[in-house]
């Protein structure tokens, strides 16, 4: 079965806790495109991302999504695990091997988010922004993913972190990747489409 190269969301209806959040929403995203979701709290940005990821079943409508990677609210990091252990696990989980002159995908991922000096820290010692950086670095290890779903990717990041994120997203899109981000803060991504969800 060939994987779809684009994201197609048609006539979507979503609810959470019995309350309808969205109705009749359609999204079409082609390779290289980005979509920024905005809107007040509680309008369904997170639920929409989770539905596209397949974590929540929609009430109505169809979602045809390419292989994707999801950056949720939680960083999915364990306080006792070191940064290098966390990133090594993510790399192994997605079938990477390193060493033997192949280069080290783990260090590439950490470098991309400016974390190379933190490898031996435990995740419990990291600041909120550094944890976010690590979670974003982990996303890049899912090489098969053609779509990144990011929930508030930049909220705890400093200016440098946002710049690194913007670079990473630009690179990913140049390679044909698609990105959907829900955000309250300006991301500064070039020519991204915008979708405002209203209550």
């Amino acid at each position: 079965m060939s994987m779809p190269a684009a994201l197609q969301v048609s006539n979507l209806a979503l609810s959470r806790g019995g309350r309808t959040l969205l109705r009749g929403l359609s999204i079409m995203l082609e390779a290289g495109e980005a979509l920024v979701l905005t809107g007040p709290n509680g309008t369904g940005k997170t639920t929409l991302l989770r539905a596209i990821a397949g974590l929540v079943r929609p009430d109505e409508g169809d979602i045809i999504a390419p292989p994707l990677a999801y950056l949720g609210h939680g960083e999915a990091l364990k306080p006792s695990e070191t940064v290098i252990d966390a990133i090594s696990f993510a790399a192994r989980l997605h079938g990477h091997v390193w060493g033997d002159g192949k280069g080290d995908v783990r260090m590439d991922a950490l470098n991309a988010m400016g974390l190379s000096k933190r490898v031996l820290h435990t995740c419990g010692q990291l600041s909120a922004g550094q944890k976010r950086r690590l979670a974003i670095a982990r996303l890049t290890l899912q090489e098969e993913a053609r779509l990144w779903l990011m929930d508030e990717p930049a909220a705890p990041l400093d200016a440098a972190g946002r710049a690194l994120l913007a670079d990473l997203v630009a690179d990913f899109r140049k390679g044909g990747g698609m990105v959907i981000a829900a955000t309250h803060t300006g991301l500064g991504w070039t020519d991204a489409q915008a979708l405002e969800l209203r209550p």
Binding site: A53, L55, Y70, G72, A76, K78, L93, H94
Partner: peptide
């Protein structure tokens, strides 16, 4: 803990 810190979502979307 896995549910509250997002680890479970990561696993659910993993291979």
């Amino acid at each position: 803990d896995d549910l509250s810190d997002g680890t479970l979502e990561l696993y659910a979307l993993s291979p």
